[in-house]
């Protein structure tokens, strides 16, 4: 269902993008670990090219173990543009509340547990996405702006990412990374769905990045 990444980018370009994603996600984990009280276990990022029409199924495949998921979404645009989806397995919001160093649970009134959960997911999502996309852009000499993050809390995993969400004529570059928290067991996936129109710029930016190391 997915195309070989090397059809669109050369294998050197894929390797470079993967390493840049690795650095970018390291930055997010470091930023996040200043806010939460646990080590974020990083995984090796993965790059894949998927037809936008198949994206819904693709993402579903990755969350099929979970009946409910929470999603934080943020669009970014610069020369590099697309959509960041941070998907948390069910229960992650509540786990993260416990891990937040500056927990303000005491100051919130009863019945606001849901608000606290969505605010926590938003905050964590904003840090992870902002640091990751920001670092990626920085390394590739781009400047991106973001829409404010949006959150869906504990949605049915089958419907959380609607099939018609993305523009159907495009191929999306998926940069995916999984992460776990050493304590608390929350897990998640970060998908950067980058628009096909960024490819020409991306190839050039990757080459420029590599030239520093010739």
């Amino acid at each position: 269902m997915s195309e070989q990444a090397t059809d669109i980018l050369s294998s050197d370009e894929v390797d470079t993008l993967q390493e840049i994603m690795n650095i970018a996600f390291g930055q997010s984990a470091s930023d996040l670990s200043e806010v939460i009280d646990t080590h974020v276990v990083l995984s090796i990022p993965f790059i894949e090219f998927v037809k936008v029409t198949e994206l819904h199924t693709y993402i579903q495949q990755h969350v099929k173990e979970y009946s409910k998921i929470s999603i934080v979404e943020q669009k970014y645009w610069g020369k590099f543009k697309g959509d960041a989806l941070l998907i948390f397995a069910s229960g992650a919001g509540r786990e993260l509340i416990l891990l937040l160093k500056n927990d303000e649970q005491g100051s919130l009134e009863a019945g606001s547990a849901e608000i606290l959960e969505s605010e926590t997911l938003l905050e964590v999502g904003n840090i992870l996405i902002g640091a990751c996309v920001g670092k990626l852009a920085e390394l590739l000499n781009d400047i991106v702006t973001y829409t404010p993050p949006m959150v869906l809390v504990e949605e049915d995993a089958r419907n959380a990412v609607p099939a018609n969400k993305f523009d159907p004529d495009q191929t999306a570059i998926i940069l995916k990374t999984d992460f776990n928290f050493e304590q608390g067991g929350a897990t998640g996936f970060l998908f950067l769905v980058t628009k096909n129109e960024s490819v020409v710029w991306l190839k050039k930016a990757l080459q420029l990045f590599l030239e520093q190391y010739e």
């Binding site: 390493e19 690795n22 650095i23 970018a24 996600f25 390291g26 930055q27 984990a29 470091s30 670990s33 080590h39 974020v40 990083l42 390394l139 050493e182």
Partner: peptide, 24 residues
């Protein structure tokens, strides 16, 4: 490493690494 969390740096230095450099 790209993993520049304080906890990561502490772990490797405790294990006997000489120093930690940040990627890139």
């Amino acid at each position: 490493t790209a993993d520049v969390q304080m906890s990561a740096i502490k772990t490797v230095l405790d294990s006997g690494a000489f120093m930690v450099l940040r990627k890139p």
